[in-house]
Design a protein around this nucleic acid. Structure first.
Length: 480
RNA sequence: CGGGGCGUAGCGCAGCCUGGUAGCGCGUCUGGUUUGGGACCAGAAGGUCGGCGGUUCAAAUCCGCCCGCCCCGACCA
């Protein structure tokens, strides 16, 4: 390669040296998203949207299998409704976009563009729920929400984003909490087994819970820059919204009770996490289970073009049953160009088929994570590809798991926490007495926030701020 | 929101300091030769220099205001 060619190839900054620039370049060059004429709002391009569709398909199947149904509620929330739950409105007020006019006429009541939909869904639940026989309600919607963010980054924080929001209503506290945990487990499976991103699973401390919730469950992942990212949340809303919106039912014991509600979500931010978690200096790297294209076939044309193309088409046809496959038979690019292009787009496997291969009845199989090449027989390619896809999926998860494990460190004193955060060690595990003042002491000293208290926590040691016995284990980190 | 940087052809950039007919590489188009890690030759097209205003005979260039994006930090379910 000439130095000029290398300069041309080096359009993606170094992931280890310029992480933020690298991230932006990969999102743009892989054509996942683009900037839009609207400040703070992004365009999700087809390849990026295909990732979202993959997440949607997988989750939709799980949600349906667990008895959930999909609906749709309005984009707008009348101001009076948004204000009904005091803590809720206080939490979202700074980020709400308001509609004040319809055409030229001022509206009698302002309309919030939903930052989340509890306030427009609860009045409907009040209408629909009369009896314990009407429960549970297990609804979700796939939609967009708007939060007027001051600083934005592609996928990670935008003024408008896509998500699903689940909203369930139950007769008992226990059932509602079980729902929260069921969803949490579905999210964990999505993150770890589909996206190959290992997570810490647990509860948020009170300071970090959803505005209006009694408690919030969360999944926290660690990105390569050692910053934590919230990958999904499941909120136990108690009876807060039921009381605010008068959602009551007549129970078996013939007394009127408020319902217990939950809400939960994952967003298109997951796509940003996916990019950061697995990408490298060649660009995007996608785990096979989420990759829109799992196998790309690159025929080496020039000699025996017809025979090579026929062999490539035959391969593509046979692989359709085991993988999402793309035959790149474009004549205008050389094989080398295509190799780089598909690597930049993160396709997990590449099959090269040239005249030599056709003559020998073989193909060259190349893995994206490490560039490893092997020659495999064209007969039985289905099995080889299926096995390689599984292998690549496991490789990505094992790598990410090792990274997470290597970046969880224990600390017992404020000094240790401060040092560990400053050195970007990742998640800092420490004790906590439960006092807000002690949490604030850690925040003020380190700039980190408490991300998660593990499920089934067995607290050990003492609170680094006050020295009293710990009542919880907390993982601190800097966060997105 | 604070600090720093950037905005010139589809993309990446030079030109600005020191005002005087807007350039380079890649890409695109046409024709030909090529094709196992970003091919080559020849020809061609492509620009409100982010926007508005000011200074000047003359502004991409100097001055003011605004908009957008990036990086660092703060803030933030």
């Amino acid at each position: 390669m000439s130095s000029e060619t290398q300069a041309f190839v080096r359009e993606i900054p170094s992931k280890s040296e310029q992480f933020s620039d690298w991230y932006t370049a990969v999102v743009l060059k892989a054509e996942l998203a683009d900037y839009s004429p609207v400040r703070g709002c992004m365009v999700i391009r087809p390849y990026g949207y295909a990732l979202w569709e993959g997440i949607q398909r997988w989750l939709d199947e799980r949600f349906k299998a667990t008895g959930h149904v999909t609906a749709y509620f309005p984009l707008f929330v009348p101001e009076s409704l948004l204000k009904k739950e005091a803590e809720h409105v206080e939490g979202f007020a700074p980020q709400v976009a308001w509609v004040t006019h319809g055409g030229a006429e001022a509206l009698a009541e302002r309309l919030a563009v939903r930052p989340t939909s509890e306030a427009i869904i609860m009045p409907m639940y009040a209408r629909w729920i009369q009896s314990y026989r009407d429960l549970p309600i297990l609804l979700l919607q796939w939609n967009n929400v708007v939060r007027w963010e001051k600083a934005t980054r592609l996928f990670l924080r935008t003024a408008e984003f896509l998500w699903h929001e689940g909203h369930t209503a139950h007769a008992t506290l226990e059932e509602a909490d079980r729902e929260c945990r069921l969803i949490l487990e579905i999210y964990r499976e999505l993150l770890e087994e589909v996206l190959a991103i290992p997570v810490l699973v647990g509860r948020k401390p009170p300071s970090e819970k959803f505005a209006g919730a009694d408690w919030t469950y969360t999944l926290e992942a660690l990105m390569p820059d050692r910053q934590a990212i919230q990958a999904g949340t499941s909120h136990f809303l108690g009876q807060n919204f039921a009381r605010a919106f008068g959602v009551k039912f007549l129970d078996r014991d013939n007394t009127e009770k408020y319902v217990w509600t939950t809400s939960w979500a994952v967003t298109t931010r997951l796509i940003g996490s996916l990019v950061m978690a697995h990408g490298d200096d060649r660009g995007l790297s996608l785990p096979p289970r989420i990759a829109p294209i799992q196998v790309v076939i690159v025929p080496i044309l020039g000699k025996d073009t017809e025979r090579v193309l026929a062999a490539a088409r035959d391969l593509a046809g046979r692989l359709k049953s085991v993988a999402r496959v793309r035959l790149d038979d474009r004549d205008e690019y050389t094989p080398g160009w295509k190799f780089n292009d598909w690597e930049m787009r993160g396709v997990p496997l590449r099959l090269e088929v040239g005249p030599r291969d056709v003559a020998a009845g073989q193909v060259v199989l190349v893995r994206r994570p490490d560039g490893r090449k092997e020659t495999v027989a064209a007969d039985g390619i289905e099995r080889a590809v299926a096995a390689a896809l599984d292998d690549v999926q496991r490789t990505y998860f094992a790598r990410a798991r090792a990274f997470l494990d290597a970046h969880i460190v224990a600390a017992e004193t404020l000094d240790q926490i401060e040092d560990a955060i400053r050195d970007r060690r990742g998640f800092i595990r420490t004790g906590w007495c439960g006092a807000q003042a002690c949490e604030d002491a850690v925040r003020d000293r380190t700039g980190a926030s408490p991300r998660v208290i593990p499920l089934d926590d067995v607290p050990v040691g003492s609170c680094p701020a006050c020295g009293q016995a710990a009542t919880a284990t907390v993982y601190y980190a800097r966060a997105y």
